[in-house]
Amino acid sequence: MALLELRDVEASYGPIKALHGVSAYVDEGSIVALLGANGAGKTTTLRAISGAVKTAGRITFDGRDITNNRPEEVTRLGIGHVPEGRGTLAQLTVSENLRMGAYIRSDRNGVKQDLDRVMGYFPWIKDRRNQVAALLSGGEQQMLAIARALMLRPKLLLLDEPSLGLAPIVVREIFRIVEAINQEQNLTVFIVEQNASLALQVAQRAYVMEVGRIVLEGPSEQLARDESVRKSYLGY
């Protein structure tokens, strides 16, 4: 059974409908990519999962119906959401950001272990723990956002366009780490991206969205060969 499943999900911002019946699933332990242009509804799909936008249809996570649950309650079920724009707690220090990542946990020892583990993936954090997060570069803030979500010890990680505004070399580094975390921690990842070529490299399966609908889905290799995907999103 899929860890996350969306069935005919609709969502609107006021009178404007952003999702017109999105169905998708994410298997446990996999990386699944959601591709599409600006405004296709990718971010809204993640926001619907987290309950940050009013939703119709049905969203199940780990066998539970989470449709329209509040964001703070969805998080407590084990979904780490790295939002669009990274959600950096900019005036707080790096270490406070990480502590907030583990906010809902009370197992001190487990949190400590996870902190070490996270610093293993992002070694630079150790030296900059006491810095205010606003002083980090864009790439560092993106890594901090992922590190913070990992501190939750989530079952599912939602990544909203981690490549946005970052240099290609930084983006590759971030994707490499995400892939490593997926393999080593068996963490399920649902990733929204405009950078289709990179996303298709790390994901096993992918969806393509256009104006609020899924228009294509399948294994990544298959989508990478698909002519329309190549033309629209891969650029060759």
Binding site: A52, T75, L152
Partner: peptide, 17 residues
């Protein structure tokens, strides 16, 4: 810490539970 975070960054904070 959570009160500070919630006051400054309500949306991010909710996503952290």
């Amino acid at each position: 810490l959570a009160m500070r975070a919630a006051a400054l960054y309500p949306e991010s904070s909710r996503l952290l539970g």
